[in-house]
């Protein structure tokens, strides 16, 4: 519960950082956070945190239930299941997976908006989209260092005690 609340607070701060301080192409830092939470806490808790993070992100964009709710939920499930297939886990692998998940997440949101709004959203292959993937890859490396991803499985930050 303690780690859940810490991650939730971090989610709000990251969204605030994106909304207030970054203009132009923005990273999707909540997605990176969801991936790390899922890696550390398993598919069920990760999926729940992903759905909550998506709900909050959609609310801030003016939806009650929108594309982020589904995409973050799925991202949490996928990254955990990908991780289980690998015996070795390091910063590069983690970054590659999060890069792929970011691209898939963007594709999901793109088709969701296109399907439900009937209006063509910004191109999936635009510079903004490419920059988002690059930013998220860099953020994945940074988070790997900050949150602390050891070779153990599931990953858990060293500052989060086992009884959380």
């Amino acid at each position: 519960m303690k780690s859940f609340l810490i991650y939730l607070a971090a989610l709000f701060l990251l969204m605030a950082f994106q909304a207030v301080f970054i203009s132009g192409a923005k990273p999707d830092l909540p997605l990176v956070l969801v991936c790390f939470y899922s890696l550390g806490h398993g598919a069920v808790l990760g999926g729940a945190f992903g759905a909550l993070a998506g709900f909050i992100a959609d609310s801030a964009s003016g939806f009650l239930i929108g594309p982020n709710l589904f995409s973050k939920f799925l991202a949490a499930l996928f990254i955990y299941n990908f991780r289980r297939k690998f015996f070795v886990w390091n910063a590069v692998l983690c970054m590659l997976f999060i890069t792929g998940i970011t691209a898939a997440d963007m594709a999901f949101i793109f088709f969701y908006i296109r399907m439900f709004s009937g209006i063509e959203p910004p191109s999936l292959f635009s510079l903004t989209a490419a920059l988002q993937v690059v930013y998220n890859s860099a953020a994945a490396l940074l988070f790997y260092r900050v949150i602390g991803a050891e070779d153990g499985f599931p990953q858990r930050a060293p500052w989060m005690s086992a009884n959380t």
Binding site: F12, L13, A16, F17, V20, A60, L64
Partner: peptide, 27 residues
Amino acid sequence: SFAFRNIISGRVEDASIYPLIVIEESA
């Protein structure tokens, strides 16, 4: 998601914007 698509109004919208207010204040 289908059930709530057309029921969004009034207080629910206020609740949905709450995270943004928290975001602004935390920022």
